[in-house]
Nucleic acid binder design. Structure first.
Lengths: 330, 330
DNA sequence: CTCCCTCTTTACATCGTGGTAAACACTGTC
DNA sequence: GACAGTGTTTACCACGATGTAAAGAGGGAG
């Protein structure tokens, strides 16, 4: 079902159908009505692909994240889809699983050019490597990537977040503060920075840094958070606070602490990062450092639209605000 | 940067570039190498839109759900994106917010045809109305839509799920069983069916149906679940079990019960539906009726690919399996 | 009645790619 | 040296839509 079919049925030229569909001014009302009747009758819908080819834009933007089902990214995706819709854009979702190879594909702009622009949240790629990305698709990097990349960026100051979270625990009088979320892979910079912020805050509070309080996890999910607590308690039964590098880890931490009979926050305080929706509903409700996701999405879209309009803009970067949200757990 | 540019640079015809890019057999190794060098050098990537137009397929499938950030749908989306990727397909995500108008647009196949096929999880549209959907884009309906629609369907037997959940509570000796999740809008059939299953199970267990134990919610999220408990306890301090029509509601229920000082499961048992990831990590861990989401996604994709290959297939439907997952809350 | 101006419709070309089939090059054979 | 046969490259067009420019229709002025 193409314009041609409608045109033939209505006895006009394809271009007239196009003019009707696109609300061109100089179309006789009767002609417009006639064409519209056949559009209805035949159930004609314009095919995006023809338009796109002609106009040079697909109207789609790609969102590449490690996992869309992780609450933080799910939320981001939901916000983006809504905001994009408001601007007449469609979102295609890609998942990297945090895999370096997949991230490289994404950074290279995908093997095939599908979208007008790309919003990319890398997990495993080193900033230095990201800086080499060379393709003409406008890209916005999400996350903590310092000054390395020359793409547009909406940064997250994970070091400051780590400081905020840890200082809060220290200020509440906690002395044996563990951090859960270290990862061996040095390219996983977000975690690294959050742990760095943790160390800075410990120092500022005059607390000793103990290697064994820095707990490595196998991934950023609830189960690894719980596993980390099992190991932590075996080694450090006297721990009195846990800074989890994000909320899902923290939720695993809460669950494991409960299983071990530790009361939160009486025995052990817990704080996370992200302020995912479920954090309000844990028992106790999770204290966390909220990252302003609406800001991230708005800025990313704004960067994209302005760069599409003006491709030669210098790379820009903003830092997403974060704030401490005190609930019951710390 | 098009094939033409590469062709000019390499001194060959555009078609030769196409042949190289598509691994056509009869290309001299030297020519192939030459072209590949220029592809590299110029950073050429084929544009999906040209291919799509030529091949008549976009390689994209649309997923339309009420909210991608709801854990159930986030999970579904993640599974779909992965499975689609394995088949060389891209997923574009649409959100209806459960809004009838938006759902109508989706059911009509969107105003503009972007994707080869559509996977649609309606929330507010009545089955009767869905049955009228008339467009040539293959559509798979997800959810509980009975025999009404003539599209392919992956159904969920919400009545059976409601029975399973409620019988489990009754079998454990609970007598004052509430259900949280009723909605006033009669088109919201999923909830209606779950409540129906609840009523059937009560009858089977010889328990009276009490109108005031059927709690209406303003939405399917954690907060409405919590709100429902506040109202429920005010009216029925003696309630000893809650069947929440899905897990996020149940999580709100757990949180509110805890706030009210009720012990779960000792004082009140709680059961949900969906088995979302966070259900393992609530305190106590949530007993739930798991819906096999991997099955849903696999079947939906299978239906789509087979229908794209053979458009005249009769509409098919399968029912997604569910099973009781007993954890700590009931 | 002719000319010009405005409103409406249409022919044509083009976006980037790839299918079809024809053109071309080269090898080996008689 | 002509010819078949294989391997390699290319010309041409179509996919569906729309921008451009020109053609056609209708009305008013001279």
């Amino acid at each position: 079902m193409t314009m041609r079919d409608v045109a033939v049925a209505a006895g006009v030229s394809p271009k007239t159908v196009s003019n009707v569909v696109n609300d061109y001014v100089h179309v006789r009302p009767e002609t417009r009505a006639l064409v519209q009747r056949y559009v209805e009758e035949l159930g004609y819908r314009p095919q995006a692909v023809g338009r796109q080819l002609r106009r040079g834009r697909t109207g789609a933007i790609a969102l590449a994240v490690p996992h869309v089902d992780m609450p933080y990214f799910a939320d981001l995706a939901a916000l983006l889809v809504s905001a994009a819709r408001d601007r007449g854009l469609t979102v295609v979702v890609e998942q990297t699983d945090g895999d370096v190879e997949r991230e490289r594909e994404v950074a290279a702009g995908f093997p095939v050019r599908f979208a007008d622009a790309l919003i990319f949240s890398p997990l495993s790629m080193a900033p230095a490597e990201l800086a080499l990305a060379r393709h003409d698709t406008p890209m916005v990097l999400l996350g903590e990537h310092g000054a390395a990349a020359h793409a547009d960026r909406v940064d997250i100051d994970s070091t400051a977040i780590g400081r905020t979270a840890t200082s809060h625990l220290a200020a509440a009088g906690r002395r044996r503060i563990a951090v859960v979320g270290h990862q061996r892979d040095p390219a996983k910079i977000a975690m690294k920075q959050r742990v760095l912020g943790y160390e800075q805050a410990l120092r500022a509070a005059g607390l000793p840094r103990e290697r064994s309080l820095i707990r490595t996890v196998s991934g950023w999910d609830r189960q690894p958070g719980a596993d980390a607590v099992d190991a932590l308690l075996a080694e450090h039964p006297d721990v009195d606070a846990v800074f989890a590098a994000n909320d899902v880890l923290a939720i695993g931490v809460l669950s494991a602490l409960h299983r071990h009979g530790r009361r939160v926050p009486d025995d052990v305080a817990v704080i996370g990062v992200d302020d995912v929706p479920e954090s309000r509903f844990t028992t106790p409700a999770l204290t966390t450092v909220a990252i302003d996701r609406a800001f991230v999405v708005e800025q990313a879209l704004e960067m994209i639209t302005s760069r599409l309009a003006e491709p030669d803009l210098a790379p820009r970067s903003v830092v997403a605000p974060h704030r401490l949200v005190v609930r019951g757990s710390a």
